[in-house]
Design a protein around this nucleic acid. Structure first.
Lengths: 147, 147
DNA sequence: GTAGCTGCAAAGGCTTTGCATGCGA
DNA sequence: TCGCATGCAAAGCCTTTGCAGCTAC
């Protein structure tokens, strides 16, 4: 059986691998969206029916601390998660469908650092989301939702 | 007696001016920081001892809806507010002191629009905060706090 | 006078935590 | 074995809301 990337990193970091952590790891490894805790929980239950939502909360916090996942806040009051990627990126939220589109821009990275430096600061973190409406949309669009 | 800018806008929008709303308006007009609800409440009590925190919550929501203040979320789980300015700007949070520095950048505005457009979206909103450490800091800095 | 505003306290949504039990290394 | 992990339920934090009384217009 093949280990998920997250699970591998867990071993490297010496974290105890329980069935529940394995389940959360797999869910987040496979997710291409940005699930919230509730969604992670529902998907994890399919892999390990014993998991509780409290454990999901504890596990995502743990994974975040060792930097194998990232926490996001898209302004709706709950946290969303994704596996840490190789490349720093940001998100554009499609206000019509709720979909999240990832993008990266070296120009943007430079500009952010430049602005911070200009104010006398070393940039150590940032948060950026764009909210947009699809060009050419008539507003009658379809929504996405989760199982 | 001179009306605050916010109070003037309230009248223009036909909002009923109560003592409590006047107090919140004045607090936000005078604030140069980005107070949270608790801080607005404490300052408003000095102007109108009858105000309750529920009213502060209702009032900032109302003011936000008519666009005379803006709501921000600096990642600490509570909302912060500031009077709407003439110019769109963003914030850099000094991680050493907690201070919030405002900045604007036309270059950045252009780049954001350009990125959104490139993804097929019309930019209708955004959120951007930079988190930084003062250059040349030894880490032994002073903190700010509020009355 | 009346619609709208307020205070109070209860409730709501997301998240954390205390405690006794369970389980991985 | 033994300490870390978990489930459950309670609690915490910020925010909203139902309701009865009050007030600006």
């Amino acid at each position: 059986m093949m280990l998920s990337r997250i699970e591998r990193v867990c071993r490297e970091k010496g974290l105890r691998m329980t069935g529940q952590r394995r389940a959360v790891a797999q869910v987040l490894s496979e997710a291409s969206d940005h699930p919230d805790v509730e969604q992670v929980y529902r998907r994890a239950v399919d892999l390990d029916p014993n998991i509780s939502i409290a454990t999901v909360y504890r596990t995502v916090r743990l994974f975040e601390e060792v930097k194998i996942i990232e926490r996001h806040d898209f302004g709706d009051g709950r946290a969303r998660f994704e596996e840490t990627g190789f490349k720093h990126h940001h998100h554009l939220i499609d206000l019509k469908s709720g979909n999240v589109i990832e993008f990266e821009s070296e120009k943007l990275e430079q500009l952010k650092r430049e602005i911070a430096r200009g104010l006398g600061y070393e940039l150590v973190g940032d948060r950026l989301e764009l909210y947009g409406l699809p060009i050419g949309s008539d507003g009658a669009g379809e929504e996405t939702d989760d199982q």
